[in-house]
Amino acid sequence: MSTRILLLCTAFAAAVAGTGCTKQPLDHISQDESRIYITNFDSTANFKSYNTYTISDSVAVISDQSHKMESGSTDQAYLAAVKKYMQQQGYTYVARTANPDLAVNVNRIYNTTSGVISYGDYWDYYGGYWDPFYYGYGGYGYGIPYYGYSVYSITEGAMSVDLLDLKNAAAKKEINIIWTGLIRGSGIFNTSVADAQVQALFTQSPYLTNK
């Protein structure tokens, strides 16, 4: 009898081992599936009222509360993609000195500290890396008229695109951020994927058009 029980238990243990214990979610997603796209917009903004925009020829690289401007091939790919989709949405690129309605900031963010990031935190950490004077509004601050990103800890880098309202800056005496897009996940700092990442942000923001 004890031999039979031993065999039964062995068969049971083998069956249990064969089923595996726990399926780890991160082992079952591809690089593309690892990415998330978060967009926010100011619900009071009328995106059809803007016609022109300007964009820097470099990207702000933000790392642990410091920043610098860079213009590598990946940065250029992101800037080109932003220009492409802004144009597709009906906005016209003009030089910074031509009194544009909108300014576009493209940022590459690295954060080696884990923690919580909301949009407010993001600007608390990094606000001012684009000096308002750069857009001809020296002395003004930035305003965030909407609630920020959902809460997720940053363990890797991110790309973000900000749309700033220059058209109403003088009247409001601050440069409001009217749209933000954040890209996070594996393999985003790559020239070959830049267009698809920016396209994803614009695709999920159908209100972002002046047509």
Partner: peptide, 20 residues
Amino acid sequence: YQKYPRSTYHTAPGEDISAV
């Protein structure tokens, strides 16, 4: 365990998240 295909979720007023 279950994985859902990529979809866009409206998570707060003015906020959308596209994710798997």
